[in-house]
């Protein structure tokens, strides 16, 4: 670019060109910003749009499969998994049968930082491998860092089937 050309341009400019140039540069930048926004809004919108999954009752087994007083791992599939979710569409829960008709289902996610807790049948405790959080059989905190009891899933009995209501990962502030 030859600076002389620009110089000449300025020199020849009529007085009204100052406002014309200001208008043109604003127009240029403004159009750029609008074009950017036109592209950014749908992109950001897509990224911020988190997938809401409707809750659904999932059968995890027949009533008689579960012993009274026992806690076992059950697993179920997300209500509407994405077709490519593969094994990640599965969720595990700890199901405890308290009586003939009463079942409790606990999330496996430790309330401390979300590691999967394990059930120690002989000790009657849940234990977290990450920082040694311990929960009693009813899900209340027995020891270690967890701030809250294990979250529960709603359970119901439908005919001779035990069903769990799926829920989002229980992240709480």
């Amino acid at each position: 670019m030859n600076p002389d050309l620009i110089e000449t341009g300025t020199a020849e400019a009529a007085p009204c060109d100052g406002s014309r140039r200001r208008f043109l540069s604003r127009l240029t930048m403004g159009l750029g910003a609008i074009a950017g926004a036109l592209v950014a809004v749908p992109c950001v919108g897509f990224l911020l749009g988190l997938r809401k999954v409707p809750s659904a009752w999932r059968t995890v087994g027949k009533i008689e499969e579960f012993q009274i007083g026992g806690t076992v791992k059950v697993s179920f599939r997300d209500p509407s998994p994405l077709p490519w979710a593969g094994v990640t569409a599965r969720t595990a829960a700890w199901l405890r049968r308290n009586s003939q008709t009463e079942f409790v289902a606990f999330a496996v996610d430790c309330t401390h930082l979300g590691c999967p807790v394990r059930w120690l049948a002989a000790a009657n405790l849940f234990m977290c491998p990450c920082h040694g959080g311990v929960y009693y059989a009813n899900g209340t905190v027995a020891a270690g860092p967890p701030p809250r009891p294990l979250p529960r899933y709603p359970v119901r009995i439908q005919g001779d089937q035990v069903q769990i209501l799926t829920s989002p990962v229980p992240i709480t502030t």
């Binding site: 997938r51 998994p81 979710a85 569409a89 829920s167 989002p168 990962v169 992240i171 709480t172 502030t173």
Partner: peptide
Amino acid sequence: TPLVGSWLGHFILAGDTAGGA
């Protein structure tokens, strides 16, 4: 995180659960 923590957590998971997305 205060206030937005739950949303932020699910934003990282890209939804209600950790899965396809």
